[in-house]
Design a protein around this nucleic acid. Structure first.
Lengths: 159, 159
DNA sequence: CCCGATTCAATTGCGCACAACTAAATCGTG
DNA sequence: CACGATTTAGTTGTGCGCAATTGAATCGGG
C-alpha cells in the first residue's frame, strides 16, 4: 500500500517528496522552537517575542507596530497581543504617535535595553545546536529564501 | 548601526546567520501554510488535518491515536481536538480499543475514504508552487533532516 | 473643503502547538 | 496476587498565526 510493486515514476516520486519537504520543514521549525524555548527560558521570552526584541535592539529609536510587522512578516492580530505581553513584562512601552495618531510606536524601556546583555549568548548557543557548517547554513538559507519567494508568488497569483 | 564600519569576523557572521536561518525557516513554514490553505480550502481541511488524513489514507486499517502522534510527532494535546474536529466533519470515527481500553483507535468513515480522491491533485499543486527542482528538493530535505536531528539532540541533552 | 478610499492598530474567533496535569487501564516485580 | 510504575488519551491554560471585522485617523480627488 505504501510502496507499489513497481518502480516509482518521477512524477509519483515528486509527489511523495513534497509531503516530506513540507513536513520536514515543520519538524525543523518546531525543533528550533524547542531549542529556543530552552535558551530563552531564563530571559522569560518566547521565540516570537525574542524576534520582536531583536528588531527593537537592532534599530535605536521607537518603531511603529507596522514596521515591526513588516520586518517579521506578522500582522497586528499577532503583534498586538505579543507587544502587550512585552509591555506587561516591562520590556517595552507603547504609545500613539503624535504626528499620526493611527500609528502606535514601540520603544524599549530600560529593562528592555538591559535584557540585551543577557540575550547576547543566545545566538552562539543556537548556532552550536544546529550543528551545521557555515557553508551548509548558507546553502540552506538560500534554498529557504527561494522556496519562500516561490510559495508566496504562487499563493499571491491565485488570489 | 546595523553594519559596523569594519568587516565582520567569522564569529559575528555566524551569529547573525543563525537568526536568518531560523527566521527563514519559520517564514518558509508559514508560506507553505498559506499555499496549503488555498489548496485544501475546497476539502475543508487545514494542513495539520490533511497530514492526519494522509496517515490514515496510507495505512488501510484503524490506527491508535498514539501511532498517528508518533508519525506526525504530535502529542495528544494537539491530536485529540484535531481528531474530534475530523470526527465532527464525519471523516473519521474514534472508538476505544477492545484489547486495550486505554487506547483509542481512529478509522476512516466512507466520507473520509471518499475524500481521498478529491485530495489527489493537491500534492502536484504544492510541488509546482515550490518551484524547486528535484535535486534542490533532495538537498533541502537532507539538510532539514540533519538540522532537526541535531536540534533534537541538543535539546534532549540539556534536559 | 468634503466625502469616499485607504491606512493602521486592535479585537474576535478559530485552529495549532506545547506544557502540565488528570484519570483510567495495563504492566511488572516482589 | 497486589501494588506501584508506566502507558494512553484527554483536559486546561498559554501563546502564536491568520482571517475577518471594527473604528479611528489620514489622504486625495472633485
Amino acid at each position: 500500500m505504501t510502496s507499489p510493486p513497481f518502480p516509482l515514476p518521477d512524477d509519483a516520486e515528486l509527489l511523495r517528496l513534497d509531503h516530506q519537504i513540507c513536513f520536514s520543514l515543520h519538524a525543523a521549525a518546531r525543533a528550533f522552537g524547542g531549542v529556543y524555548r530552552d535558551a530563552l527560558k531564563d530571559l522569560g521570552l518566547t521565540y516570537p517575542q525574542y524576534l520582536a526584541m531583536l528588531v527593537l535592539w537592532e534599530e535605536p529609536g521607537p518603531q511603529p507596530v507596522k514596521a515591526i510587522g513588516e520586518r517579521l512578516r506578522l500582522d497586528s492580530g499577532t503583534l498586538s497581543p505579543l507587544l502587550k505581553r512585552l509591555e506587561a513584562a516591562g520590556l517595552v512601552a507603547r504609545e500613539r504617535s503624535v504626528e499620526d495618531e493611527r500609528s502606535v510606536v514601540v520603544r524599549l524601556t530600560e529593562a528592555g535595553e538591559a535584557l540585551r546583555e543577557r540575550a547576547l549568548p543566545v545566538p552562539r548557543r543556537i548556532v552550536t545546536a544546529t550543528g551545521l557548517s557555515l557553508e551548509e547554513a548558507l546553502t540552506l538559507r538560500a534554498l529557504l529564501e527561494r522556496l519562500t519567494g516561490n510559495l508566496d508568488a504562487a499563493q499571491g497569483g491565485e488570489r
